[in-house]
Amino acid sequence: MANHHPITWSDPVARSPISMPGTYVVVDGWEQCDLTSNAAMTLADESHRTKVVLRATPNHSVREWLPPLRSSRYSGEILQVGSGPAEWYLIGAEPPELMVEGLPIEGGEGFASWVDVTHGRALMRVTGVDTDSMLSKLCAVNLAEGTTPNSAAFRTSIAGVTTDVIRDDQDGLRSYLLHCERSSGQYLFEALLDAGTEFGCELGRRVATSSPVADSN
């Protein structure tokens, strides 16, 4: 039975789990807030980024292509993150199929697989010299340079929400990417903003950054 029906509907628009004041525009099918800021601390919604979680058994060769646990590195414009034991996140702008293209997932010993979790994770970025102080109000992990330097990655509780944290400095400025499961995204975002008030945190993308997974579009 064919289900074609003359009824039409509007083009699908992907919506972030995070809503914030400001004007929204649709970019590449995603509704995005156009707020920008160059305040001492900025908090931006990056949920529209493609997010892929990849898992591989201990004997699988794809592991050699990926960063060790609790660290991250860029492969081209894709941020690869060793998020958990035998678990990696890939964050970027390409469709998920392209994100994993080139990785030896198929074949060989063991088993590896990936899942597109773009729509299942809220992703936000907080940038500024005091971001470690701000996060220390919500999280017990030592954010000192010696313990969690740039490119460090870890999973912890932020304001009571299980959150993946990646230190991803922007133009020499301390910056963290944080992602959690989508349904808690709004809560976490508001908790970060509240904690950041003391440090002059403003909402919006920073306008001048050079990192591939940056606040700017």
């Binding site: 979680v53 898992r55 088993f111 597109d116 979790v117 299942g120 499961e181 349904s183």
Partner: peptide
Amino acid sequence: WSVNVTPVTTAM
């Protein structure tokens, strides 16, 4: 066992 488990409750 080769099984990869991924929670996707809020992905959908």
